[in-house]
Design a protein around this nucleic acid. Structure first.
Lengths: 337, 337
DNA sequence: CAATCATGCTACATCGATTGAGCACGGTTG
DNA sequence: CAACCGTGCTCAATCGATGTAGCATGATTG
């Protein structure tokens, strides 16, 4: 009766988990019947209501749960969607992770996220591992080298999507960095007209920073305010780098500061705290954080539309759009006071 | 030659991934040899250097990566460690997630985290799913019902560990909430002696809140300061609840505020911003956040020792300690200014 | 020279779930 | 009564990797 020489069911060998063969023996049915009942295909497979109930009862009693490794191996469909993410240490990435999981679950997919510390090697290893787990689709968020991951996925026949940072070899969903930055710069310029702002943080080689600088310039151009080269301090994202850059800067600080990320903002505020007399500034930051929003000088933040971006990502999953596709999602300007 | 009637290797059927059988055909070797070479057991299995190199070259060329479903199924060992986490939206949980992943990888385990939105049903479903993926060990962080998860794991023969919030049915690693709260209360009392503080946030039924209240009381007792019942406003964690509780409170605000979480702090600061004239307060908060630390009134925060806690968790993995074990890890008091 | 041993490799059963093929049985139909 | 159909179920192959058992071959020993 399909016992296959395994230890007697019920012997409760702590090392071995209950399988459909154990349930089959207990319910006096075949493993096929058990499988069909437990995965919901039993009506189609013409199993009687009576047997189905018996099997379900036994499964319940034994606290059975499928071995998904076996199931996935056989079905050749994992329903796993993977995401690679640089860090979990800010609200933006945290929100992406939460939303991604919720959205995946809502359509019956199993989300797996892993964080790669902005380390290109770890990023690649993580991608390889996800592919080994047979993910249906791999989403690379803020990857340092998205194209390498896209190519690797392509070779394995796995769909890849870039989020936040675009790439050329897979479809990308990104914020409208240009528009968001222009709006934020306008907000600051409204409050201190005629004087150019200071842009601080990020790397000019980075796509997102480049787009934000473009938006920053556009806002000044819209208002006919000439922008000296010294108004752009793309000194890296790290808080310490921002502090050092401000320390090294010559001349008076302009009233309006455009800060390129919340992590940069940490350095900016720490530096400002040390000045006496305090510099009268108004700060706008790209990205949103609830506590940063409560800082007295902080007059506005750009919140990225995480829900909207993930909606686009999930629209793409399973639909193999062309690699060059780039979807830009508008950002949300939050004014304080 | 072991082709098993599969489609010709090299036919590049996009739908089918390369397997060891394909590699075996290409390298003119057996699937066993390929497997042994790729998983590193080839020396023990007396495969020649020459064949090993040939196989590795072919594998490289084909961009092969193992099917871990098949591998795990056969080995009956997944090397997956699972973690269930309520949210990703604050620094504490973010740090736990990052550290957990780094620590797991460091010892060759594959970390899988899933966030369950403090929803008991989702928590349980997530645990079931992790067990279906054959995790070696499941860590429940801040679970609403840790014992239910522990029992379920026990039935499946999977090790369970509680983190942050203790349970009775599995070993638990938690912060020393009592000690941390007492130290933070002392810090506030040093600065405004003789007057009792106000405790705000959390639920008294919650283990961590109860311990922190105990520490809060102890600090007052240490200094012989009598504590009225009204000094404890355990109104829930949410920011809105804190705002409402402060609004409803009668009498002048004491100088020292003991805030039970960063999310509660958000509400407290928003309420304070609305008062005029501004209330002269000094705030200490349990949990740490870099921007909250920059708020002008914030004189101290308790940082939980995430690295230390995870060190303890990983010490327990694979060592099946008694279910009642509770490990308390000291917290770190951060004074500002 | 026969017996023994080391070396280098392969055949095949196995992990647990899934699923196409097909068996047995009772009821209809022409 | 034979041919046919529907119902309820089981058999056995399969997914890809692993590892035990074992087969050749050539070298070494008594």
């Amino acid at each position: 009766m399909g016992e296959k020489g395994k230890p007697e069911p019920g012997s409760r060998n702590a090392a071995r988990r209950t399988t459909i063969y154990d349930l089959a023996a207990l319910a006096e049915a075949s493993a096929s019947a058990v499988s069909a009942v437990l995965n919901g295909t039993w009506k189609k497979r013409r199993i009687s209501e009576r047997l189905a109930e018996r099997i379900l009862r036994v499964a319940e009693e034994q606290g059975y749960s499928v071995n998904l490794q076996a199931s996935v191996l056989r079905r050749e469909k994992s329903n796993i969607v993977g995401m690679i993410m640089p860090k979990y240490d800010n609200r933006y990435f945290g929100a992406i992770a939460e939303r991604f999981e919720a959205r995946a679950r809502a359509q019956g997919l199993f989300p797996v996220i892993t964080c790669t510390q902005r380390d290109p090697e770890l990023e690649f290893e993580a991608a390889r591992e996800m592919i080994s787990y047979q993910v249906e689709c791999l989403i690379a968020t803020g990857a340092t080298d998205p194209d390498r991951i896209s190519d690797f996925c392509a070779a394995a026949g796995v769909q890849a999507i870039n989020l936040d940072l675009p790439g050329g070899r897979a479809p990308s969903v990104v914020s409208d960095n240009f528009g968001g930055a222009r709006d934020l710069a306008h907000l600051l310029l409204e409050r201190a007209p005629h004087e150019p702002l200071l842009f601080i943080g990020g790397r000019p080689s980075d796509h997102n920073t480049a787009e934000r600088i473009r938006g920053f310039r556009a806002a000044h151009a819209d208002r006919g305010i000439p922008l000296p080269e010294s108004a752009i301090l793309a000194c890296g994202y790290a808080a310490e780098k921002a502090e050092a850059a401000l320390e090294a800067r010559a001349g008076a600080l302009p009233r309006g500061l455009f800060v390129n990320s919340t992590i940069t903002l940490e350095g900016v505020v720490r530096w400002l705290r040390r000045q006496s007399p305090p510099a009268p500034v108004e700060i706008g930051t790209f990205d949103w954080d609830p506590f940063a929003a409560l800082l007295p000088d902080c007059v506005g933040m750009v919140e990225q539309d995480v829900a909207g971006m993930l909606e686009e990502v999930f629209r793409l999953i399973g639909h193999a759009p062309e690699a060059g596709l780039r979807i830009e999602v508008p950002t949300i300007l939050r004014r304080h006071l």
